[in-house]
């Protein structure tokens, strides 16, 4: 088969690691959605040629170390406060491309007020929100987005709304606010979904540069360690359970 041996030349290269990703091995568990979303953000920054003009704000949660993986300037915010931090960064640096990267506990529990108010003020930033229905970093406790019946370390018999309240769709809530221009729910479980998610990231960044207000991109993701499944099973479980509860698609696009 030597006649069909593909030459590994620049000319034949169709996919390689973007230079906006550092060489560090990510601390995430095998198959974690965070890695895929990080990569997409890095690729979009690279494609927009904005590495020197992008400032990221990382959360408290699994993505706390996001700053080790994207080769841009970063601020690490206190738990839930990334939107407040990003507000100031953008207001004081209007020419910069500013985004927050947050999980469900950070954005939809402890940081709810900051989330609502950045969206209401319509700051020109992008919010990337990974919703995997669990607190990963602290060891798999219940999140505001944990599904009814889903078992976690702090709802070991399954989430009971009488005891724990209901999961909620913060994407739908922020889509109601005047300051958001683009609210969408994506996933990264298949190559097709990844391609769509990347387009959403690009659009969010472009909106922020165009001064259109907050773009809010939610990624329904997996936490295979927290869910106690292998990565492939976690993707399947997500398709069968998470996505019906958090339907994919645009909630707002103006």
């Amino acid at each position: 088969m030597a006649e069909f041996e593909v030459q590994k030349t620049q000319e034949n290269l169709v996919y390689s690691r973007t230079k906006v990703l550092t060489d560090n091995v990510m601390h995430y568990c095998p198959g974690c959605s965070h890695g895929t979303v990080h990569k997409l953000i890095a690729e979009v920054i690279d494609e927009m040629n904005m590495q020197d003009k992008t400032i990221g704000v990382s959360p408290v949660g699994c993505a706390v170390f996001a700053y080790n993986y994207l080769d841009i300037d970063w601020a690490e915010a206190a738990h839930g406060r990334a939107p407040a931090v990003a507000t100031a960064i953008k207001r004081l640096n209007p020419d910069k491309m500013v985004f927050t990267y947050q999980g469900d506990g950070d954005l939809a529990a402890i940081g709810t007020a900051e989330t609502i108010h950045i969206c209401n003020r319509g700051e020109n930033v992008a919010i990337f929100f990974v919703n995997n229905g669990i607190y990963g970093m602290t060891g798999g406790q219940m999140a505001p987005t944990t599904l009814i019946g889903m078992k976690t370390a702090t709802c070991p018999y399954g989430r009971d709304p009488k005891l724990h309240g209901f999961p909620y769709k913060i994407g739908n809530i922020v889509s109601q606010l005047e300051g958001t221009c683009y609210v969408t729910r994506q996933s990264v479980n298949t190559p097709a979904a990844v391609r769509k998610a990347k387009k959403a990231i690009r659009k969010a960044f472009e909106n922020s540069l165009a001064g259109k207000g907050v773009s809010f991109v939610e990624f329904v993701g997996t936490c295979n360690s927290g869910w106690k499944m292998d990565p492939v099973a976690a993707n399947k479980w997500m398709e069968e359970n998470m996505i019906p509860a958090y339907p994919l698609g645009d909630l707002k696009d103006i």
């Binding site: 400032i55 704000v57 601020a75 915010a77 206190a78 406060r81 407040a84 931090v85 990003a86 507000t87 100031a88 960064i89 207001r91 004081l92 640096n93 007020a113 900051e114 609502i116 108010h117």
Partner: peptide
């Protein structure tokens, strides 16, 4: 100079953090 009324003191001190970062 930017002047902004935040939604809480939590937000205003974290806005200070954001500005100071830069």
């Amino acid at each position: 100079m930017v002047v902004l009324q935040a939604e809480s003191e939590l937000a205003s001190i974290n806005m200070v953090y954001g500005g100071a970062c830069c």
